[in-house]
């Protein structure tokens, strides 16, 4: 009995030396990272896709001589928040995006589309500049942007075809985009004057149709501060109401992302 009591006392004493968990751990999942990379990339693609789409439609509009058909085209391909006006050696597309009104200034330099370089500018000097040049039957769009904390460039190839709206029920252009968008996000910490870079490179293989996209997006995200390199693949099925994010082999589905209102 005495030995049992002693043993119990020793056990009691030793128990107090055992460490205890005092805080729940964070979750180990790549899902938040995949969502952040996708959310960030989406805005870059939106800019590029929107610029291409608007230029293509504007080009078609320029080729319509008949005023009535031109007005009809405007009504079909540009929504009510978009206006179109011609200027010397080009035209201006003004769109209402969110609460702000933005304008793309397209300079044709007297060339027809596909016959020479077109320059597209949005907020010149502190915005986006795109040069569209012919490239053996398709188009090469070289775009650079310096907007806020984001600077980057894209070099993509695209082709397009006009779709009979009455056949498919959706009057639109179908464009195929292949290329790279490289973005560097500059961020400095307020309390520590440290400027850090996060590079995001997206390789696109997508088709866009009336605001709907399909295809694949490969995102590389390089964090120079931590020397970390993360990869994300975004699978965008056509006519599905979800996209699939694949990050480090983990797969996540995001629903209600089909209507990508770029």
């Amino acid at each position: 009995m005495r030995h049992i009591v002693n043993l119990c006392m020793i056990v009691v004493s030793l128990m107090s030396f055992v460490g205890c968990a005092v805080e729940d751990a964070g979750s180990r999942s790549t899902e938040p990272m995949a969502k952040i990379m996708w959310r960030t990339s989406k805005s870059h693609i939106a800019i590029v896709s929107s610029a291409i789409e608007d230029v293509v439609h504007a080009n078609e509009l320029l080729n319509i001589a008949d005023e009535q058909k031109r007005a009809e085209y405007m009504g079909r391909y540009f929504d009510g928040a978009t206006s179109f006006s011609e200027i010397t050696n080009g035209f201006v597309i003004t769109k209402l995006m969110g609460d702000s009104r933005i304008s793309w200034v397209v300079t044709t330099n007297g060339h027809a589309f596909g016959q020479g370089d077109w320059t597209v500018e949005f907020q010149s000097g502190n915005g986006y500049t795109m040069v569209v040049r012919p490239n053996n039957g398709e188009y090469r769009a070289i775009m650079s942007f310096d907007y806020g904390s984001q600077r980057g460039s894209s070099d993509i190839y695209f082709s397009y075809s006009l779709v009979d709206g009455e056949m498919l029920g959706y009057p639109d252009v179908v464009s195929s985009i292949i290329g790279d968008i490289k973005v560097t996000v500059y961020e400095s910490n307020a309390s520590t004057p440290l400027c850090v870079d996060t590079e995001i490179t997206e390789r696109l293989t997508i088709s866009e149709y009336n605001g709907l996209m399909s295809g694949q997006l490969n995102v590389d995200c390089i964090d120079k501060y931590y020397d970390a390199h993360d990869k994300l693949t975004v699978l965008i099925p056509l006519f599905k109401n979800y996209i699939e994010l694949v990050c480090y082999g983990d797969s996540y589905q995001l629903f209600n992302e089909r209507k990508l209102s770029w």
Binding site: G26, M33, I36, A228
Partner: peptide, 11 residues
């Protein structure tokens, strides 16, 4: 998102 904290242990 990339890094997570493991469970904290304390003596």
């Amino acid at each position: 998102a990339r890094y997570y904290w493991t469970k904290e242990r304390a003596v």
